[in-house]
Amino acid sequence: MVLLLDCGNTHTVFGCADSEGKLSQIFRMETNRKKTGFEYASDIRQIFALLKIDPDGFCGAVISSVVPQLTEPYREALRMAIGRDALVIGPGIRTGLRIRIDDPGTIAPDLVAGAVAAKAKYPLPAIIIDMGTATTITVVDQNGDYIGGVILPGVGISMNALASETSLLPSIDVAPSKKLIATSTGDAMRSGIVYGTAGALDGIIDRFLSELHTEATLLGTGGLAGVICPYCRHKILVDEELLLHGLWHLFQLNEREAHRTSRES
C-alpha cells in the first residue's frame, strides 16, 4: 500500500491506495500548526489501531501540503509511523504535466495533484473546482497542459467574514435554505452563500469555456463541493477523492523514474 497525505489549511486527509490505485481507509484530521512530528506520529498510529491498518504494510508515502510549516513535521511523522520516507510534492518532481504559468515553481501541490488526476481519469479539457479554505478553479487543456486558473475566497471564509464583520448576523452552518427567497435571517444567509457561490462558479465556468472555445469536463472536489455543485446550472461531477488519486499517480510516476535511474547507474 501507499499512504497518501493531503494537508490543507483546515483539514488533512489521509488515504491508503493499493497497487492498482484503489483507495481505502480514508480519514481526516484537523490541521494543527502547533503540533510536532512526534505528536502527529502518535495521532496517526492511534488512528491506524482504530481502523486496523497495518503500519508495516506500506511500501511508501506521498505528501501534498499547502501549509509549509507542517511539511517537515508530517514527513517526520510518517517516517516514525510507517518507517518510510515520503515523497513530497514540489519543485523538481516528475508530474507528467507541462505547467504553463508564469512561474511553474510557485504552483501549489494540491493543484498539481488535482490536475494529474483529472488528466489520468477524465476526458480533456477539464475544469477543476477545488472547494477548500479557498476555492480554486483551474484548467487542464486538451493537450494535458496545466494552463492556470482563478482563486477566490472559500465558502467558510465568506461565511465567517459575514458573521464577524456585521453586528446582527449570526454564525450559521453551510446548508441549503428551504427556498431561495428566504424568510428568515439564517436562511437568507444560507441562500446567499449557496446560490451566490454556485452563481460565481457558473459565471467563471462560462468565461473559461468561451476562452477555451470548446466544452470541458467539469469536476468538483474538496469539502464543500457536494453541497454547492448541485446548485450550479452546469453539470459538475463531484469526485471527493480526486486529489488522493492524483497523489497516487504522482507516487507511481516518481517511483518508476527512481527505478529507471537506479538501473541506469
Results as ranks from 00 to 15, higher is better:
2 V>F: 14
2 V>D: 00
6 D>Q: 05
10 T>Q: 06
10 T>N: 09
14 F>A: 07
16 C>W: 01
18 D>W: 07
18 D>M: 09
19 S>E: 11
19 S>F: 12
19 S>C: 06
23 L>H: 10
24 S>V: 01
28 R>S: 13
29 M>E: 14
30 E>D: 10
30 E>Q: 07
31 T>K: 00
33 R>P: 03
36 T>V: 11
38 F>P: 00
39 E>K: 05
43 D>Y: 13
44 I>Y: 04
45 R>D: 01
48 F>T: 07
60 G>A: 08
60 G>Q: 06
62 V>I: 15
64 S>N: 04
64 S>F: 02
64 S>H: 03
65 S>N: 02
70 L>W: 05
71 T>D: 02
72 E>G: 03
74 Y>R: 00
80 M>K: 08
85 D>Y: 04
85 D>R: 03
87 L>R: 08
87 L>S: 04
91 P>W: 10
92 G>N: 05
92 G>K: 06
93 I>W: 07
95 T>F: 13
96 G>C: 07
97 L>A: 06
98 R>C: 09
104 P>A: 13
106 T>R: 15
108 A>V: 08
109 P>I: 13
112 V>R: 11
114 G>H: 05
114 G>E: 01
119 K>G: 02
120 A>N: 05
121 K>W: 13
123 P>T: 10
124 L>D: 02
130 D>P: 04
130 D>G: 05
131 M>T: 11
132 G>C: 10
132 G>A: 12
132 G>W: 06
134 A>C: 14
136 T>E: 02
138 T>L: 01
138 T>V: 15
139 V>C: 12
148 G>Y: 10
149 G>K: 10
150 V>Q: 01
153 P>N: 04
156 G>I: 14
157 I>N: 01
160 N>F: 07
160 N>R: 13
163 A>T: 08
165 E>L: 15
168 L>K: 15
168 L>G: 11
169 L>W: 13
171 S>A: 11
173 D>R: 05
174 V>H: 07
175 A>R: 11
177 S>H: 00
178 K>E: 09
178 K>T: 08
180 L>Y: 12
182 A>G: 10
183 T>S: 13
184 S>T: 15
185 T>W: 08
187 D>I: 03
189 M>K: 07
190 R>S: 13
190 R>N: 11
192 G>Y: 14
193 I>E: 00
193 I>T: 07
193 I>P: 01
193 I>W: 02
196 G>D: 00
198 A>L: 08
199 G>H: 04
200 A>K: 00
207 R>D: 01
207 R>H: 09
210 S>G: 08
215 E>Q: 09
216 A>L: 08
221 T>P: 02
224 L>F: 14
225 A>V: 09
230 P>D: 02
235 K>P: 00
238 V>Y: 09
242 L>I: 12
243 L>P: 02
245 H>G: 06
246 G>S: 11
247 L>Y: 08
248 W>L: 05
251 F>D: 07
251 F>I: 05
253 L>P: 03
264 E>S: 12
265 S>V: 15
